[in-house]
Design a protein around this nucleic acid. Sequence first.
DNA 1: ATATATTTTTAGATAAGTCTAAATTTTTTA
DNA 2: TAAAAAATTTAGACTTATCTAAAAATATAT
Lengths: 220, 220
Amino acid sequence: MQNSFTEENYLKIIHSLSGREGTEVSTNALAESTSTRAASVTDMLRKLAEKGLIHYKKYQGVRLTDSGEKVAIQVIRKHRLWEVFLVEKLGFGWDEVHDIAEELEHIPSEILVEKLDRFLGHPKFDPHGDPIPDAKGNLTEPDYTILTDVHIGEKVLMMGVLDHAPSFLQHLDRSGITLGAVIEVKEINEYDKSASVQINGGPTLFISLEVSKNLLVQRR
Amino acid sequence: MQNSFTEENYLKIIHSLSGREGTEVSTNALAESTSTRAASVTDMLRKLAEKGLIHYKKYQGVRLTDSGEKVAIQVIRKHRLWEVFLVEKLGFGWDEVHDIAEELEHIPSEILVEKLDRFLGHPKFDPHGDPIPDAKGNLTEPDYTILTDVHIGEKVLMMGVLDHAPSFLQHLDRSGITLGAVIEVKEINEYDKSASVQINGGPTLFISLEVSKNLLVQRR
DNA sequence: ATATATTTTTAGATAAGTCTAAATTTTTTA
DNA sequence: TAAAAAATTTAGACTTATCTAAAAATATAT
């Protein structure tokens, strides 16, 4: 009763697309995210439904069952723990680890995950600021604020990113915007909503709305 | 031009079955080792031959090409590095790591392997005493002696095992026979070739011929 | 509310890796 | 060295995850 690599990926993607409210996910959205065609998704959904991992009624979209949710969360736990390993222990950049973790997350072995977790010191967040579920699947979603919601004059702590694209992360690296950096919003351009921000009390730089939208920060 | 999980396993097994001399491996031997049927092996051999990874003539057995050899050795390198990681860093026993390493060895990423190797301090041997090929595939086969070839009175160093079966390794653990242990052969029973050995100058115990045959030691 | 557009599902096909049963080749033995 | 045994390959089929094209269901728009 093992789930395949592919099945685990579907569950993980359904989880992330259905959000915290557990809303229905459409066939087309899944086709997009899995880089397959809608017909292939339908086939897989029938299979996952038979295994009791999703609620699925034809034409009605799909939702994870409790059992499917559990699997998805364990895959996410593994993904994020491996990312911590790759960055903290092996010295990868945060822009380089996604694809490798995508493979490692499917290595089956409960004990492996638990030992890895202990080895890493039970980290609560991955290198992108995403929270790591514990062994029971409990996950405390931190109350991050998106930088666009921060007012002029506020000083906030850089805690995570919404976009994980390597090019975006490399851009942040070049700007000195790393996890833990202090960001003070100095100015906001009315016209294009671009912002002037000071990093760690040092250099001031301009960031576009596109960037602001993807920065998760914490008020102090 | 990626090789699949399955292809890599065939290459690895052909490598180990053809030994240092690179002798031909039979279809049946491969069926046995891969837990498949001879017919399936034939199919795969045709495929590997088309990719230029093996020399294959119908009914004549199979040998790795230089290119196939290279792939096999990289898989072995990855397997053994991951085993070191699992034992040294995560605290697994040497009897527990084979199956997990069997999965990890197929994670594709040159950089990952090189960073892992550096993180582990470029180990030369895995937890069973098997040599780890370097990035170029060079492997210095150490000149181990099998314990059955050691004479009464000799003191040798425990350096490795031929059998990797968990039950065998657990048996060694219970006897205190770990890598690096000093073994002095005290007596050899003429009748069944069982031996009396002293471990680290401490307790003396009896080991069967079956055990002796699987212990690799080094004369000092 | 009906026609049109969009989304989703079904039907039938493909590739990878496996299988069984039958045919063929090689090896062994008498 | 011919017959029997063993090993190997071929033929045809199955499963998983995918595809395209066509059909069916749902949603949108006038």
